[in-house]
């Protein structure tokens, strides 16, 4: 038996149940039946498809009638008035809201260009640099050696240690000595962020009285003793 004939039988059964008053269509999920029908319809089984359509329109007609009845029930003011007048408590009414409350998703402060630029910076740039080289020719589901995964902060660390090496000749020095003012504003803040990280990681020390930065004895990661 083809799937289409099986569907026809189910729809015919549903139609008969509705016609003899054994089933209400208000809670019946007709959408899934029609989606199934839409996916199964074929030229080779046109006759069966027409029969399904025939039964389907009868069912829809009944569903519309039931909906009409439902709406008229709701529009019967007296019943609603009675219901609210005799409702047991505020808590019982408030419970209704717990089941139907929803929050709209709103992104008011992000413009489309901002989102697009963020996507380019965060995803496209990363994809085009390290990741492509590392994962090249490797199937996604292969057992990757975890040590081969890229360290997201590695380039930053490398730059930070390069900066540490570059300021070696001028240490001990003040903040003004360490941040080269001849550079653009971006580089200025970049160097400043290196200093903060180097302080936090213990590679640099700061003496409050003299306002001077200096080396500590901490060795740079990955460097062997020289």
């Amino acid at each position: 038996m083809s799937q289409l004939i099986s569907l026809l039988e189910r729809i015919s059964f549903l139609k008969n149940q509705v016609l003899i008053g054994k089933k209400s269509l208000l809670d019946e999920d007709l959408e899934s039946l029609f989606v199934e029908f839409k996916n199964l319809i074929s030229e080779s089984e046109l006759e069966t498809s027409i029969q399904i359509m025939n039964n389907g329109t009868i069912i829809l007609e009944h569903k519309l009638e039931e909906l009409r009845g439902f709406i008229s029930l709701i529009s019967q003011k007296n019943q609603i008035l009675e219901y609210f007048k005799n409702s047991s408590s505020d808590e019982a009414l408030a419970k209704i809201f717990n089941k139907i409350w929803q929050s709209p998703l709103s992104l008011p402060h992000f413009s489309l260009s901002f989102l697009t630029k963020s996507f380019e910076r965060l995803v496209l740039n990363k994809k085009s640099s390290n990741l492509n080289i590392i994962f090249k020719d490797k199937p996604i589901l292969a057992n990757l050696d975890i040590r081969e995964l890229p360290e997201i902060d590695k380039p930053y660390k490398m730059k930070m240690f390069e900066y540490l090496n570059s300021i070696h000749p001028i240490l001990p020095g003040t903040l003004d000595d360490l941040i080269n003012n001849n550079h653009s504003i971006d580089v200025y803040y970049e160097n400043f962020s290196y200093i903060l990280h180097l302080l936090q990681l213990g590679y640099l020390s700061f003496t409050k009285n003299t306002q001077l930065f200096d080396f500590t004895n901490k060795k740079i990661e990955g460097k062997s003793d020289e």
Partner: peptide, 24 residues
């Protein structure tokens, strides 16, 4: 777009929590 009501129910995010009178 919205989150499903089930999620809201789990997190009790409706503004009438503790205010049944206003909700009623």
């Amino acid at each position: 777009l919205t989150q499903s009501s089930e999620i809201e129910e789990i997190f009790n995010s409706n503004p009438f929590n503790g205010k049944p009178r206003i909700a009623a």
